[in-house]
């Protein structure tokens, strides 16, 4: 009792300390749940996998494998390629959508924004499975193609390949780009557009010189978000990819689930993280990343 009282008094006499005490729970949970696992993961990449998990035998085998294994390089490039394509496609779809919503002045504006998110009340996995009856051999597209007599036989072009992975990823991650773009468009004062028109800018040029540059933080932020989510994706490629649509994320998951090679899985994860960090760094040289996620 008197101990705790003395403690309180001591804290009261050192006001600078209060801040640190307030931060303590947050810092502690960050250390336990983020920092420690990360350090552990880095350690593990220098260990050796064994039948019953890992042995702390220090070596560089995993890094030799990274350098020499053509499958890793190929898969990483493929994942990057898919992530870039998906990001570009999403931006091309999300920008006009966000633009339309932001330019609406009616009270339906927020309803529209909500509509973008409604599919997200359904589980990611179920939404992904929903592509089976659309893209599959007996799916909607094949039905329409057959009905229009465009193809006599059902085509197996649409599911279990890279195409379906792209489709799935685009549909799953699109709202993550719509929101930051919407927020940055929303912040552009209509008076600026009037000023541009007043100074002789036709709508297209006003868009190019005023709207686009001012929404660039949202655009880059959305791109970054989608890219990070896509490059490490593994559920979508697992469900929709088939053998040819596999991404790096699937191989990583495999090391922990099927193959039971944790140290190799950790190494692959670390590589993926490095690539992601480089991309974040590149983008953050153009916009402040905090601005992207916090909207200011």
């Amino acid at each position: 009792m008197s101990h705790s009282r003395r403690l309180f008094r001591w804290v009261g006499a050192h006001p600078g300390l209060g801040i640190w005490l307030n931060l303590l729970p947050g810092v502690a949970s960050l250390v336990v749940f983020v920092f420690a696992p990360l350090v552990l993961m880095v350690f593990v990449t220098f260990w050796r996998s064994s039948v019953d998990g890992m042995e702390p035998i220090w070596n560089l085998d995993n890094y030799r494998k990274v350098a020499s294994d053509p499958m890793f390089a190929g898969l990483l490039l493929k994942s990057l390629r898919i992530a870039v394509t998906v990001t570009v496609v999403i931006l091309m779809l999300a920008y006009p959508l966000a633009y339309i919503i932001a330019r609406k002045t009616s009270r339906y504006k927020h309803l529209l924004l909500l509509l973008v998110f409604i599919p997200y009340w359904i589980s990611y996995v179920i939404r992904t499975y929903a592509w089976y009856p659309i893209l599959g051999k007996e799916g909607a597209i094949n039905y329409v193609l057959g009905a229009l007599r465009i193809s006599a036989q059902p085509v197996e072009l649409f599911l279990f390949n890279e195409f379906s992975v792209h489709v799935g990823l685009v549909s799953v991650f699109m709202p993550f780009a719509v929101v930051p773009i919407y927020l940055s468009l929303e912040r552009i004062s209509p008076t600026l557009l009037e000023a541009a028109a007043d100074l002789g800018a036709r709508p297209a040029r006003s868009f190019l010189h005023v709207v686009l540059p001012l929404s660039l933080p949202g655009l880059l932020g959305g791109a970054l978000m989608v890219f990070i989510l896509t490059v490490g994706a593994y559920v979508t490629p697992q469900l929709l990819g088939g053998p040819s649509g596999i991404m790096l994320g699937n191989i990583i998951a495999d090391q922990f689930g099927g193959t039971f090679n944790w140290t190799w899985g950790g190494t692959l994860s670390l590589m993926l993280m490095m690539v992601t960090l480089v991309v974040i760094w590149l983008v953050s040289r153009r916009v402040r990343v905090g601005q992207v996620f916090l909207g200011d």
Partner: peptide
């Protein structure tokens, strides 16, 4: 005639300068 084709220019109360 739209604003961008009128030989008239406006000074806005809120300035409306292009921030970028």
């Amino acid at each position: 005639t739209p604003p961008y084709e009128r030989n008239v220019n406006t000074v806005f109360q809120s300035y409306a300068l292009f921030p970028h």
